[in-house]
Design a protein around this nucleic acid. Structure first.
Lengths: 200, 200
DNA sequence: ACCTGAACACCGTTCAAGT
DNA sequence: ACCTGAACACCGTTCAAGT
């Protein structure tokens, strides 16, 4: 019920404000509770008013996803040990995603968000992978991202399924896979080290 | 419009029949087109009639997912080369999932289906991983499954996103990651080979 | 047991106003 | 430009019948 406003009166809505409110709903009541209507109610406007600032519900979700990615602890591209820096970025990404469980399916179906935070993270990863000497930077980055998001999707204190596994064990599995992948990337890079361009 | 039937007349509905029809809808018109109402229409019954045979829409989706998993080419647990057999199983899983793109998000959010086909596949993987001497069979299996499903989720001829990549390249990335993971599993197994139990 | 009729409590989105 | 009112075309699920 948009309560107190007359017909042409601005509610002072902003795209950023809408997306933040959407994030709050997801945090408070789960992703299933997010609808254009619950969102409108929280902002004290009618549902259709939102469409002056966002394109669609998917647009809203994209914004929420990128905000979440903003919580990832970003390592510096100039970190002394690029492999350790990559390990930290991916581990932080995993932790953030596990902290926002019911957003993870959206993450995968929308291919991990294309917002500014996702792009910044991707750039840092590219730079670190370049310093390691990765043969195919795009491939390495994608495999790492798939592992982080996929692992988060599988890390559920899974109600009924018997494969369900504790958060601690899921985290161990993630760590193990991450080490295997980084080792593979490094090894592939080492093979190609026939005087190619490196960082120092 | 359930056309020609009187009030208590059986339509001869079966759970298997319902799930098959649901799979047909997804194949014909995409996952977005599947609703209890479109499903009922296709089966020429009213929507609520379905609830005598299935618990919910999620129940239907679980059935569809497991049917899809039935298409995976199963390697024999006794295959001469267990590593190659694992590689074949994962590659076939990836291919099947890419062939059912819009089901993949459901796959991840429902943790890969718990039906008979999923269980059978998991058993074969466990046996092969045991023969390789994997240190932690559960971890290895989960990491491989996450890689296959996650890679499939990211393999889209992605409309607008700039990260979108051709099906060929996505497949190359999957292959690369799979090799890294299998190498890691084998290497971890080799380290622990201090006279433990093996297959021969 | 297995179905229909009717309803409940929702959705996302659009279109024509009003200021 | 930014909002409201009203509507369109849907959802999943339940409950009370009928045979």
């Amino acid at each position: 019920m948009p309560a107190s406003r007359g017909r042409g009166q601005s509610a002072g809505l902003t795209r950023a404000q809408i997306i933040e409110a959407a994030g709050d709903i997801v945090a408070d009541a789960g992703a299933g509770a997010l609808s254009m209507r619950t969102l409108a109610t929280r902002l004290d406007v009618t549902p259709n008013a939102l469409y002056a600032h966002v394109d669609s519900k998917d647009d809203v979700i994209d914004g929420v996803l990128d905000n979440v990615l903003g919580e990832v602890r970003r390592a510096s591209p100039q970190a002394a040990d690029p492999i350790a820096a990559l390990e930290r970025i991916m581990t932080s990404t995993y932790a953030v995603l596990v902290g926002h469980r019911d957003l993870v399916p959206s993450f995968l179906s929308r291919q991990g968000s294309r917002g500014p935070n996702a792009l910044a993270l991707g750039d840092i990863m590219n730079h670190l992978l370049g310093r390691i000497g990765a043969e195919d930077v795009d491939a390495a980055r994608r495999v790492l991202v798939v592992h982080a998001i996929g692992s988060a999707a599988f890390a559920t204190t899974g109600s009924e399924g018997r494969l369900a596994v504790s958060e601690r064990v899921a985290r161990q599995h993630f760590d193990l896979g991450l080490r295997w992948l980084l080792a593979g990337i490094v090894e592939t890079a080492a093979k190609n080290e026939t005087g190619g361009v490196t960082d120092r």
